[in-house]
Design a protein around this nucleic acid. Structure first.
Lengths: 359, 359
DNA sequence: TTGTACGCGTTATCAT
DNA sequence: ATGATAACGCGTACAA
């Protein structure tokens, strides 16, 4: 035998329809598009639904319509506050829309990513936002199978899955190093933690800049696979000082490290920027209020999330997305920590005001 | 007439069953609980599913079973990195489980919260994690209607909706102020931003401590509705200096502000802690590496998320949750920024090592 | 351990 | 603008 009959207390579309004196499909229409129902019935349905405390059943809706309004979002870390800005943009963009976000954390693992994509697939998502360009072949296949708009965020790469928005981490780092070189620095250290694909690309930018200036020295590079932190900035810097006591600048692959380096300098009474210049990456809020103010590379994280979400919605709703690969660029924010009077080519005032070089 | 028939390319349970030579229900059982299917059929089903590229349909599953494995999580902010720690705990706990998380951002608005709860309700969530205890009556009603385990996190309060885990913000702040008083400070400022309910409660703790010590002075309190930031810490401190030039300590309702105060002190050449002692709140990672190291109140955010999630799962899966209201406590971490030699009652060494007073 | 019969609550399709 | 009908893909209840 089948199961027992519908419980009497339950409120379905049918109950609302009965009370309003219309057919269920009219109620269904009312909830999806009120304008397609005549004013008189609209009111009757509205009050009937309220009286009964009707709550639409999303599962039934998804099953019948064969689609959902779920946007899957995959990020590698919840700890790294770079992603909180991106997420804020995404959530803001979907705010008030009918879409809801399904967030998952890959923990910088492509296998986790694969597993999570498979999970997403079961939900028949309306759109997908994934981080980076390093999906496995299998991962890409799963995404293709989802058959929905996809945006890769955070960086750029050849052959996007669908759409893409980000910037070149290598170029951004190259620009930061160029700035330091322009300030007269030659012994520029590189500090990196976690060493995920994007930090790796920053390292490449560093190497290129240093080699082109004929000042490359592998001893200037100190990295760790451990996640980033302020404390880690201090220890990496200490390591760097041992390997290269003559350094005159440090590029930090992110701002936490830079803050840690600043504190370590204070602890060791190393003058910033006179003895060691510092440049970070991401331009977190605190960089501008440090003493001295800390230079960094501004990346448009909030806008990235916002536009990624907008691209998804435009695509779903049939508005043609012409710019399918968006380079958001970056900006080297030159502050006190890397502004040297001795700078040969510096035309910038040595103030704490942010002066930007837009790429 | 009805709709057109099933597309031939589609892979359902039925297709897998046909290929494996079993009935659909056996395939269904296999996917939910492989052990209930005999080994022989298990293998046949497994390979049939793989060959056909079968992906379970979550909507159909939810509709048929009348339940989901979705846990709704409501937090007030994505920017405030206090919540990234909580979230990390939650995500870690659900990692590898069959549950998936639906995260939503209330932006510190109870009306938003209501709206989001209503949205969650449509999904028939298996569990709910909500922030704080200040839900509207309507909000509480919606949560009740969800008829699933609920955990309120971040703080404690009378009459929990269901379960609760957090700590007393008033007590935590009271303890921090007591520490400063014990160090000999009397003119202790209070800096607060955003002023959400939990910061308000910290302010109450401050007021009680100050009044009990007969050193309360409203001019020592500077707050703003604007969200917290390091820069804001600097400006609030500047405001405070104007209102109370004779202050000897500052309690900051969160660590960002404390960092901003430290920078402002550096900028003004105010000695920390000799002229002004500083204590923050939350004990973010950077506090321990600042110069001087910054005192703070440690809150167990990661554990809070982890345990909240565990409580939900235990409840869903029928394991009795005996401790339904959990006080996670806090710890005043005394570092250099608030350790004064002149301290009359100080028995702690004036080192940068964290010394804890556990409540 | 496996299968049968039926319904979960909604929407697509076609017809009026 | 509204309604009748069938189907969405799966799990529950019960039987064997």
């Amino acid at each position: 035998m089948g199961r027992k009959r519908n419980e009497p207390g339950k409120v379905r579309l049918t109950e609302v329809a009965a009370l309003a004196g219309v057919s269920p499909i009219t109620v269904s229409r009312f909830f999806r598009n009120p304008d397609t129902v005549s004013a008189g019935r609209r009111l009757r349905i509205e009050s009937a639904a309220k009286d009964l405390g009707y709550v639409p059943n999303l599962a039934a809706r998804a099953l019948a319509s064969q689609r959902t309004e779920v946007i899957g979002v995959l990020i590698p870390s919840l700890t790294n506050n770079v992603f909180s800005d991106v997420l804020r943009g995404i959530y803001d963009a979907f705010e008030g829309s009918r879409y809801s976000i399904q967030l998952a954390n890959t923990r910088y693992s492509v296998l986790q990513e694969e597993r999570l994509l498979r999970l997403f697939l079961m939900q028949k998502p309306a759109g997908l936002i994934v981080t980076g360009v390093d999906q496995t072949a299998e991962g890409r296949a799963i995404v293709q199978a989802a058959d929905c708009p996809v945006v890769q965020i955070m960086e750029l790469g050849t052959d996007p899955i669908d759409m893409m928005i980000g910037f070149s981490h290598a170029d951004a780092c190259y620009a930061a190093i160029s700035h330091l070189l322009a300030q007269g620095c030659r012994r520029i250290g590189f500090l990196g933690a976690r060493m995920d694909p994007r930090v790796q690309r920053r390292l490449h930018g560093y190497q290129n800049a240093m080699k082109e200036a004929s000042v490359f020295d592998p001893r200037l590079i100190v990295t760790t696979a451990v996640p980033t932190s302020t404390t880690m900035g201090g220890s990496l810097f200490s390591d760097l000082l041992l390997k290269a006591p003559d350094l005159d600048a440090v590029f930090c692959a992110n701002d936490d490290l830079a803050l840690g380096v600043l504190f370590e300098c204070q602890r060791r009474h190393i003058a910033v920027p006179e003895q060691v210049a510092i440049v970070g990456f991401n331009d977190m809020e605190f960089m501008a209020s440090a003493v001295p103010t800390l230079s960094s590379v501004r990346t448009n994280r909030y806008e990235m999330g916002l536009r990624a979400a907008t691209m998804i919605m435009d695509e779903i709703e049939g508005r043609a997305v012409v710019e399918r690969v968006v380079d958001l660029g970056f900006e080297v924010i030159e502050r006190q920590s890397s502004t040297l009077q001795r700078a040969p080519a510096s035309l910038q005032p040595a103030s704490g005001r942010a002066t930007g070089t837009k790429w």
